[in-house]
Design a protein around this nucleic acid. Structure first.
Lengths: 233, 233
DNA sequence: GTCAAACTAGACACCATTGTCTAAAACGTC
DNA sequence: GACGTTTTAGACAATGGTGTCTAGTTTGAC
């Protein structure tokens, strides 16, 4: 990193007075380094340098490396959770145009939870350190992004009962929706580059289209005679 | 690990004479440890213990840790590749029952490529070390499991031209197929436990069902009068 | 300006790990 | 059984990271 001071400030944009600003710098830098190097590969010195803070300051705030790590995880999880809630609130309960509305929702989900820095951090860390820190995985599932699944299932259930969708297994549908949304992204997100807005929009649209082809309720076509459906089914 | 000697043999089941057996033991153990601990977290001593081999033997075969790591990656990639080819050969070109046949295919894919020890290793390592070893990611994409996508796209194209499926974008369909197959598995695979055969079968079946609802060509129903389709479309 | 708290820089002991080296042991072949 | 190769166990220096300590500096509040 060429200019760590700049980077640290860029990340959060805070210029509050001392103590709080330092904490945030440390958390930001630690998230970055842990994500890039993994727990074992990350060194306190590296984090200190990236946060523009002396090593001792880190030890003052967080007794040891492990403490810092869990603090970072908690911090990122909280942030992700709150943005998750606001995204879920935009789910189209009474959709005007189902495809458009669901696509917008999916886009918000990817942009703010799945595909941003925090989302990447959690995904990578749960994957790489999940075996060594089971509580990390559990936390992700119960109190973090893992909740999206069940929340989405409930929302889809409402749409299904409303006759807009035709779903047997809501949990399954929710998992598949998320899987489809991620289908195009996994490739893009895996390495460093951030996907462009256009790529994200396409990914969301593609996912929703396929999802709807699989799960939208049969259209009661105004032109077609209804009775025939019985003979076909 | 309670009984490393047993574990090492269990993994490959080889009892060849000395030198070759040692190499394999080392590769097996190294894969296991690298996968569990990541590159930085894995220690040569740990690998040596798990392979029931002295540390020096490892240094004799592979000059340094990095060499060992790339050898392991290459080994696992090759193994995965060959099983991938045999699985792709089972793709239902002339499906009898499309859902059943595709489900069987999907099951083979998950069991032998995506969900087994090798698949897990590559996925984890590409994810956690991909940023530090770009050639790892490139290798995965070009010479490893990353090829599944394009191969599947070609196979789906054949089915589509044959009128069995109705697909616009073959690459997209292939990615979505894989995403759906993984939808149920990601949860299961992430932590240690190996999914049961039943879980795998269900996952495959669920994925295929949804995929076919989205992409199967409209059925020319024997009972329904064909001409009406025009009026509806 | 004073004071206490927070921060810094550097030195430090401690430990784990890498990679080398050596002498002895095991192995396979003839 | 003798010979060369492979393997082993252990000692070893070098390195790099953790976490502590200290003495000096900055910072903010009053």
């Amino acid at each position: 990193m060429k200019n760590p001071k700049e980077a640290a400030h860029k990340a959060t944009g805070h210029t509050q007075r001392g103590q709080c600003s330092k904490r945030l710098s440390i958390l930001d830098a630690a998230a970055e380094v842990f994500c890039r190097e993994g727990f074992a590969g990350a060194s306190i010195d590296e984090i200190a340098a990236e946060a523009c803070v002396s090593r001792q300051t880190i030890y003052n705030h967080y007794r040891e490396k492990e403490t810092l790590f869990t603090a970072v995880v908690e911090d990122v999880t909280n942030r992700t959770n709150s943005s998750l809630f606001s995204i879920l609130a935009t789910f189209p309960d009474k959709p005007d145009n189902l495809e458009d509305d669901l696509s917008t929702f999916a886009l918000g989900l990817t942009k703010n939870c799945l595909c941003n820095q925090d989302g990447k951090f959690l995904r990578k860390l749960v994957q790489s350190e999940g075996e060594r820190y089971p509580q990390l995985f559990e936390g992700w599932r119960k109190h973090g992004p893992g909740k999206i699944g069940t929340a989405l299932a409930a929302l889809f259930a409402r749409l299904s009962y409303g006759g807009v969708l035709q779903i047997d297994d809501f949990d399954l549908a929710a998992r598949q929706f998320l899987a489809l949304v991620n289908a195009d992204l996994q490739m893009i997100t895996l390495f460093g580059e951030t996907p462009s807005d256009e790529e994200l929009e396409n990914a969301a649209r593609n996912a929703v289209r396929t999802f709807l082809r699989a799960y939208s309720a049969p259209v009661v076509n105004i032109a077609a005679p209804a009775p025939l459906a019985k003979a076909v089914g």
